[in-house]
Design a binder for these strands. Structure first.
Length: 530
DNA sequence: TTCCGACAGTGGGGTCGCAAT
DNA sequence: ATTGCGACCCCACTATCGGAA
């Protein structure tokens, strides 16, 4: 199969707006892909290379050669080159990878270059990704959508499932079974503003601690244990504590779902940054001594021969209580969400959870099955939110559907004492593009142009006069911003043109929201530079 | 007819290891 | 020794389509 066919399909998909049209185009393309092309084409149409990591990114695309006049590349040729790049390592490998990209791009037509760049950068932006490919696979293979979804939920790898469906139809799909040692897409939680809203979505539910760590899916067969992250990355070697904890359980085989997190010396949950850094480290011995990890479990997908994913949440919890009584997450059950006293009790539980330093709660339906990879109504998370009035210092031109709009805002707090510049100035705390409707986007583009002071290619610096009401989850230590602090998950709630910048919140207020780590080794956390 | 679930897009913070400088 | 890059951790929110209610 020729690469140009995929490029043409991708372009047509990008041009279509109706989903059924996109799916029809994708299905037509998949139908033409046979044999060893099938899994590769399925991966590419979903916007990813077949290799999970290629070592290639934006930087390798900066100097694009002129496009070829006529198409010559085949799917197999391109995949072979990407595979070669992904295996390169050691001195000189960057240059080698760069050479591979240049050769591919020089042999590619303009349309093919667009596809290759999209795949390599991971930003194909054709309005279709894995979700629609699943529909397209079902259509192309003429099998029920539910069969493809089921296979994917127990197998986790889209190219494999697509190839099986196209080659062997429904019988090939039914051969995929939950198997210990093969990661599956974890169930996700939808957000809700407060507990009442969450319970309204779930019905009778367990309210659990939400730990601010790294999600782990653990597979055990005998003494064999594997640990996977949310994106199905295998991190077994980096989390021996998890392996040991699960080996200590009185089960022969299991697939368990949980969170790994570090605690500070005083026993409070460490900031996410601490856990994240530990999990990323490869120098195990030192890392483990300095920052031990602990495991908390909240679900069981398989225990001793029984697949539990289709069973109600309450049943899975019961199995987990027996299998891992010491590691199970604390929870509070609300049998009847319409009972005010029950909801009050849950609110007290949530308040206690926060007082212990956890991130929030997750409300889990007692009835719902384990729906892999979906953000259904089964699990709903509730986290507290902080709001502040900050000042827009600059804005960046947007991409894609935000092209021509000032999108990403640079946010600053007032610095009345002049700790980070002239007194009465502002100190930057981060950026945000979230929370903006199209109407707000239009409005701020006009307003910020009025306030423009100087402009570079991507950034428009403005007079610090426009206040925005910002919501965020917390203040974290920052190596990047002048105050050594940054906002976590900042989003815009509203523009406040009515409010003068002199009334913006101050850096002192921001600092008051920073929870300082109490571990001895982190005492330099908010040292200010001079 | 209206409502709502699922999807894609638009990017944010941080951290690590590795290769290039 | 420092810097830039790629790969992953955590993620919020809006627009849109199309089936459910």
């Amino acid at each position: 199969m020729l690469l140009t066919e995929i490029a043409a399909a991708s372009e047509a998909v990008a041009a279509a707006s109706a989903r059924r049209d996109k799916v029809a185009l994708l299905a037509a393309c998949l139908r033409r892909a046979s044999g060893s092309d099938a899994p590769v084409v399925a991966a590419w149409l979903s916007g990813r290379t077949f290799q999970r990591r290629t070592g290639l990114g934006w930087a390798s695309l900066r100097s694009a050669p002129p496009p070829a006049v006529s198409p010559s590349l085949t799917v197999q040729m391109v995949d072979a080159q990407l595979a070669r790049a992904s295996l390169l390592t050691g001195a000189g490998s960057s240059g080698e990878r760069q050479k591979i990209v240049l050769e591919l791009l020089s042999a590619a037509t303009a349309g093919e270059q667009r596809l290759l760049s999209g795949l390599i950068s991971g930003e194909l932006r054709q309005g279709a990704a894995a979700g629609l490919i699943v529909d397209a696979v079902a259509k192309a293979a003429e099998v029920p959508l539910a069969s493809v979804r089921r296979a994917l939920s127990v197998h986790g790898d889209l190219p494999d499932v697509a190839a099986a469906a196209l080659e062997g139809g429904e019988s090939a799909l039914s051969a995929f079974q939950l198997s210990i040692g093969r990661a599956l897409a974890p169930m996700l939680a939808a957000p809700a503003p407060e507990l009442g809203a969450a319970l309204a979505k779930t019905g009778p539910a367990g309210v659990e601690w939400k730990l601010d760590g790294v999600r782990v899916q653990i597979h055990r067969q005998g003494s064999d244990v594997s640990v996977f992250t949310r994106t199905l990355d295998d991190i077994t070697a980096r989390v021996p504590e998890v392996v040991e904890a699960v080996r200590g359980l009185d089960v022969a085989d299991a697939i368990l779902d949980g969170e790994v997190i570090a605690y500070t010396a005083s026993g409070r949950p460490a900031p996410f940054q601490v856990t994240s850094a530990r999990v990323a480290r490869h120098d195990l011995e030192k890392a483990r001594a300095a920052t031990p990890l602990s495991l908390t479990l909240f679900d069981a997908l398989h225990v001793d021969g029984d697949d539990l994913i289709d069973r109600p949440g309450a049943d899975r919890r019961t199995r987990l209580e027996v299998a891992a009584p010491e590691l199970i997450v604390p929870r509070h059950v609300v049998d009847d969400p319409s009972d005010e006293a029950a909801v009050t009790g849950a609110q007290a539980f949530a308040a206690d959870t926060l007082a212990r330093g956890h991130e929030g709660v997750v409300v889990k339906s007692l009835a719902s099955a384990y729906t892999m990879g979906r953000r259904g109504a089964g699990w709903v998370k509730v986290k507290p939110r902080i709001t502040l009035d900050l000042v827009v210092l600059a804005a960046e031109w947007g991409h894609g559907r935000r092209t021509g709009k000032l999108s990403n805002l640079h946010l600053g707090a007032r610095d009345p004492e002049g700790e980070y510049g002239p007194p009465g100035g502002f100190v930057m705390l981060g950026k945000t593009f979230k929370g903006l409707t199209d109407v707000m986007l239009d409005w701020q583009t006009g307003k910020l142009r009025e306030l423009a002071e100087r402009e570079s290619k991507w950034v428009v610096h403005v007079r610090p006069e426009l206040i925005v009401e910002i919501a965020f989850d917390g203040v974290q230590r920052s190596p990047r911003y002048p105050a050594g602090l940054a906002l976590r998950f900042a989003r815009v709630l509203a523009h406040r043109p009515d409010k003068p910048a002199a009334q913006a919140d101050t850096i002192a207020t921001v600092r008051s929201h920073h929870v300082v780590e109490d571990g001895a080794e982190n005492s330099s956390a908010d040292e200010a530079e001079t």
